[in-house]
Every structure is written in C-alpha cells, then in structure tokens.
Amino acid sequence: MTGDLLQLNMADLGLAYGLVLLSAALVRWQGYGGSGGLLRASLRMVVQLLAVGYLLEGVFALRHPLAVAAILAVMGLFALQVIGSRVQDKMPYFYRVMAGALLVGCGLVTWFFCVGVVGVEPWYEPRYLIPLAGMIVGNSMNGAALAAERLAVQIRRGGAEIEAALCLGASPRQAVAPLLGSSFRAAMIPATNTMAAMGIVALPGMMTGQILSGTAPIIAVRYQIAIMCAITGAVALTTLLILHIGYRSYFTADQRLKS
C-alpha cells in the first residue's frame, strides 16, 4: 500500500511554504501587523518538525527502550512546562501534582492501549509507542491545564462557600465537591467536543495521515476510534487525579482552608 504514497521532496515543501509567505505578505499589505510573528512561528515549526523527524528516524532504527524512555521523558517535561506557562493561578505543590497526575494518568492509559489494545511487541516499539504517547500526553496536557486553572480560580473565589460548608461539619472533600465537579466538566469539554465533531466537521489528523500514507480508510477509522477512547480515558484519569490530589493542597492537615 505504501507504494502508492506520493513522496514530498524539498521543492514540494518549498511550494507549500509559499502559502505561509503569501499569508504573511497579505497581512503586511493590509497593515494588520503580526506578519513577523507568523513567519517566526512557521520557521520554528519547520525546524522543530525536521529535528523531530531526524530524531525519530534514529530512535526507530535504534529500537532501544532507554532511547524511547528518554523521548517520553522529554515529552513529559515539555508538557509540564506548557501547563506551567498556561496556568496563571497555580495551586500549592503545582509541579509535583501535575507531574504525578500526568505520569500515572498518561502512563497507565498509554501502557494499557499499546500492550492491551494494539498488542505492540515489544512494548517499547517506538513506531507505535512514541506517536500514541504523544497524542495521549498532548490532550491530557490541555485537560490538566484547564482543570488546575479552574480549580484554583474556584477555590480562591469560593472561600466563603467552602468555609460555610466546613462550619457545618463538612470534610474538605465534601466542602469542595461542587467545585471539583465543575472543574472536571470544564477540563473534559475539549475532548467531548472533539468526539462530537469527529468525522463530520473534520477528519482527524491521525486518520488523515494514515489514509494519505496508503492505509485503508476503515483501518484508519478503527485506529482513530481506539485512540480517541484512549485520549478520553487519559484526560479523564489525569484530570481526576489532579482534582483529587490538588484540592488537598488548599487545606491544612487540621482541615482549614489555607489563606
């Protein structure tokens, strides 16, 4: 099937990049500003993707678990850095909570998906593990940032509500239960919306990539369904962990709301 794949050479890429140059020129001509930012971002994208491409070629050829682990570690650290930059109102022990939740939430789901669902042999096969982990971590990162931000804002604004419940003998968990629920729902909105629109509003990227590379559409669809289930599970699990561990960081050991 891959024999049918139309290869893109550097001239083809140059032609595609012409669309970016054209966009930047139009933006500049109209005087909207931002054409420089557009060019910088596109150049950064090209450099990053080419670098990752060559790196993955090496890792795929090496097929060593340590090399795969290193890639996954870098991926996780980058996700942490992105979450940290997105969340303005950080909970106490922010990075510890985020790292723990991502590690457990994404780690468990990725392992289950690769080994249990896809049946990857060996389990660290980089051709499967790295792209699948990337999609799972990327989506969980968004959910984690949304959950952490929403929880922090709600607890900061809802101090009176929480203390009113504590005064009636509620445990910290009971006092923040409504806030945990709304934070969870907010974190799940992107994953839920993506699933609802999938196949109708747009064909998902992974599926499109597989079809372009010659895979039969129904096979690509099966993969897409499976990966969406994994993403949803990972986002839900990571978010639940963040909320479950995170709310505790706002309370003292003697069940007072930290000021």
């Binding site: 009176a160 203390e163 009113a164 504590l166 009636l168 007072r256």
Partner: peptide
C-alpha cells in the same frame, strides 16, 4: 477532630453564605 468540633462550636459569619 475538626469536623466534630465545628458541629459542636458553630460559627455564623457576618456575610451569610447561601447554598
């Protein structure tokens, strides 16, 4: 135990919070 104490010693703040 904090929950036991807060049930026994009830605090009503100046600004009432309504659920």
């Amino acid at each position: 135990e904090p929950r036991r104490l807060r049930r026994t010693v009830a605090f009503v703040p100046q600004q009432p919070h309504i659920f």
